[in-house]
Design a protein around this nucleic acid. Structure first.
Ligand code: MN
Ligand code: MN
Ligand code: ZN
Ligand code: ZN
Lengths: 132, 132
DNA sequence: CGCTAGAGTGAGAGTCATTCTCATTTAGAA
DNA sequence: TTCTAAATGAGAATGACTCTCACTCTAGCG
C-alpha cells in the first residue's frame, strides 16, 4: 500500500487514539474506543489506517500469543523490540543489539538471505505481580 | 488439556504424518494429507491431537507471519528456536544461548517475571534463492 | 470560491482458521 | 463380552480480518 494522498479526520483520529494508549491494542479495541468517543469511524477504516501507519513505521505491530494483531504508537525510532506485560499491556521498548547480531550470524551460517526476525518478550510487570 | 487417557489411531496418524513432514505445516494441511491418505479423520480431531502434542512438547508450534499456527515434529529436545525458509518451509533448529541470556537479563532489569519469549527467524534458503 | 475526479470511507457480506456442539463411536477396565 | 465415559467428527458457530461497492469528501483546477 502506497502512502495516502489525502488527509482525513479518520486517519488522524486513529493516530491520536494510539498516541493516548500506553500499551499494545488491537484494531477492534481501537475501533471501540473511537466509537465510544462519539465518532462514526468504520472498522475497515481503522484496519486501513493501522496498516498504513505500520508501513511507515509510525506504529509498531506484533502478533499476540493468541494470534491477534496488536498496535502501538512508538517513540523509539528505528528497529527495536518489546517486553510486554501479559496482564496490563504495559510495554518497554528494547534495543537488542545482541539479538540482531545473533540473527545475522545464524542466517549467514545457514546460507539464508532476506532474514526477518520476530523477537518479543511477554511477562508480568512488577505492578501486576503485586496486585495478584 | 490434560494428557489423553485413551489411544486412538487418529492421534497416532497425526503423529506419524508429522514425523514424515520436513517443515512446518498447518493443521489444515495435515488434515488434507491424512484424508488424501485415505483416512476419515476429522479436522477437529487433528486440531485436538496437535494441541495435545504441543503441550507435551512432542511437536513445536509457531505462528506464521500471517497468523496461522504451524506445527513440526521436533528432533532437538528441550527449548530451542527455528530458522524457516519462507519459500519451501525448510527448517533449521537453533539453540540460542545468547538470546536466552538476553531474555533473562532484560526481564530482570525491568522487574518482569514469568517471561516468555517468541524468537523465530524467517528467510530464503540457498536452494530457493538459486531457483528464483 | 464552486466544480469535479477519484481517493477514501463504511455497512455489510465474505473468507478462513479455529473452536464448539452433540449424537455417535470406541478404547479399555472389569 | 459388557459397559461407560473418553474420543471422535460433521456441521454449526465464532471471531478476526478483508472485500465490495455505492456514497462521501479531499484537494487540485479554473
Ligand atoms: Mn531485532
Ligand atoms: Mn529461547
Ligand atoms: Zn502489568
Ligand atoms: Zn527454501
Amino acid at each position: 500500500m502506497q502512502q495516502p494522498r489525502r488527509n482525513t479526520w479518520q486517519r488522524e483520529a486513529v493516530r491520536a487514539a494510539l498516541v493516548q494508549t500506553p500499551g499494545f491494542v488491537s484494531a477492534q479495541q481501537l475501533h471501540q474506543v473511537l466509537r465510544d468517543a462519539g465518532t462514526t469511524i468504520g472498522l475497515a477504516t481503522v484496519y486501513r489506517a493501522l496498516a498504513g501507519l505500520s508501513e511507515t513505521e509510525e506504529v509498531d505491530s506484533l502478533q499476540s500469543p493468541d494470534g491477534e494483531n496488536l498496535f502501538r504508537f512508538c517513540a523509539m525510532p528505528g528497529h527495536h523490540h518489546h517486553l510486554i506485560c501479559r496482564a496490563c499491556g504495559d510495554t518497554r521498548e528494547l534495543s537488542a543489539t545482541v539479538v540482531e547480531e545473533w540473527t545475522r550470524r545464524v542466517g549467514a551460517e545457514h546460507g539464508f538471505s532476506d532474514i526477518e526476525h520476530v523477537v518479543d518478550l511477554f511477562g508480568i510487570c512488577e505492578r501486576c505481580r503485586a496486585t495478584a
